[in-house]
Design a protein around this nucleic acid. Structure first.
Ligand code: MN
Ligand code: MN
Ligand code: MN
Ligand code: MN
Lengths: 270, 270
DNA sequence: TTTTTATATTAGTCTTATCTAAAAATTGAT
DNA sequence: ATCAATTTTTAGATAAGACTAATATAAAAA
């Protein structure tokens, strides 16, 4: 049986690979708040178990099997976050911590029922894509705010679970699907001057914060690019069956320019 | 921090005390499917931690502190079971196993939100009382079917989490609030002949099964006995606030003759 | 290319939770 | 009250996960 600890290792490695950071023992150790030596040890065990490839001194990469498990946990995590927000009224900043524990405790049945209840959602409260039951993920076409040029943007995604940080962003009005102008980037690694569409007060966001925020230009790119890709891909039967009275959940984020990607063999399960 | 394992020990001891069985090492070992020696060891640790009193060779009793923790887990377990049934559409027989894991993973916040969402329920899907946030429990006035005399009864409670057994009872129509007649008890530890109010076919229920089923006479006892005790006790504010659109959950089991009991110092928290 | 610095691995220890086998205490039956 | 049967406890081992300190390797500087 795969322990909670192993699930967390695999998920962390997956996220590290997604960011194209190297899954070195030190990187993973920092993310998991354990000693480097602990990770070395675990990498050896996980390799023996066939969940990752590991070359001493060169870090690890997930095997297909390891990746599938990681994707399963990631799916759970994100569905649970959305559930906490939509059904139990959790705040944006509160969902991550709770999901971090629940993701290891729920059954397959629970996850699939959640998926139904939430009407097969595509994104979690932070704008992150929810993998489907087979481990497929839509691909986000957003860019990092820290690298964006001045212009009009819609906020798409925030890559952090830190409650302090998320509360801060919320206070600044920086939540997914909100629009703003990036007025300028101040020199010498300075903050970004932005202007929310709703209010008129200009705000300044530090570069470190901006690195965790992803956006798309507003208005969207030429019509040509928006073909079928714009709607969430049909996956499985989406019968009215079981869709309970949580109508407000419906507002599927169709604004988002996502594209379903079956490609990338390494990412493709089985 | 209290581990999952410790939580399970405490909950199991509480349930054992509730049934006025002795919390001997062997009883607890059987319930938890571990070796007797393991329990001896754990009892010693738990005593050192102040969670129970333990006299070698004479079994354990929970301290106030241990009892409070056990009641907290029991509350979680039962609220989660009801949630699984009412919100995620789990079957009667499926809820226990899932709750057994989730009870160790959810936060206080989660539990209180569930309580709101379910509109402060009093009983779980098996008819067991849900302790309130302070650990108080309504007292059930039901009797064991195995000891009942022929007559008219309403089923109130089933003390089992075993899916096989629960599915069996469900097929036989023996679920909480269903009515039936106990026609006779066959001699020599024989089965009970019962007749459901709805259908006409007589059914036979083994004595072992009957021991896990609790009932109250139908119609209820003289009007005199039914005073204020009949409605679920006011606990905390029960504002309309937060009561979401799960109207079907409303049907609070007011039929049940429960009585709120603040008494029993040993059971009274703090 | 050698030396220094940063990173990673190995070795040895600890804690929690579990087991089996042997010894001790209690219970029940003469 | 004594002996036999049952139950419980002690002792010794194991496995997972983690830590610290010491050692080895790789990368960067000189
Ligand atoms: Mn998260
Ligand atoms: Mn986690
Ligand atoms: Mn249960
Ligand atoms: Mn449990």
């Amino acid at each position: 049986m795969i322990s909670i600890v192993v699930e967390n290792y695999l998920k962390t490695i997956l996220k590290t690979e997604d960011q194209s950071r190297k899954a070195s023992t030190s990187n993973i150790a920092r993310d998991l708040s354990v000693a480097d030596a602990t990770v070395t040890d675990m990498f050896q065990k996980l390799q023996k178990a066939g969940l990752l490839e590991y070359k001493p001194y060169y870090g690890a990469t997930l095997t297909k099997q390891g990746r599938m498990i990681a994707l399963k946990i990631l799916r759970r995590h994100r569905l649970i976050e959305l559930f906490l927000q939509k059904v139990l009224g959790y705040g944006w900043a509160e969902v991550h911590e709770e999901a971090e524990k629940l993701e290891h405790a729920v059954s397959e049945l629970f996850v699939e029922r959640l998926d139904q209840l939430l009407n097969f959602p595509v994104k979690d409260p932070h704008g992150e894509v929810i993998p489907d039951a087979q481990g497929f993920r839509a691909t986000l076409e957003d860019i990092c705010l820290a690298e964006a040029k001045p212009g009009e943007y819609t906020l798409r995604r925030v890559t952090s679970g830190d409650p302090e940080f998320l509360s801060y962003l919320e206070r600044e009005g920086l939540v997914p699907s909100n629009r703003f102008s990036l007025v300028e980037k101040l020199p010498f690694q300075g903050p970004l001057k932005i202007m929310l569409k709703s209010s008129e007060a200009p705000r300044f966001i530090g570069l470190e914060a901006a690195r965790k925020v992803y956006v798309t230009p507003t208005p969207p790119l030429a019509e040509g690019r928006r073909k079928a890709a714009d709607h969430p891909p049909a996956r499985g039967r989406r019968k009215a069956v079981g869709r309970r009275q949580l109508a407000e959940i419906e507002r599927r984020d169709t604004l988002l320019s996502t594209r379903h990607e079956f490609a990338r063999a390494s990412q493709h399960p089985a």
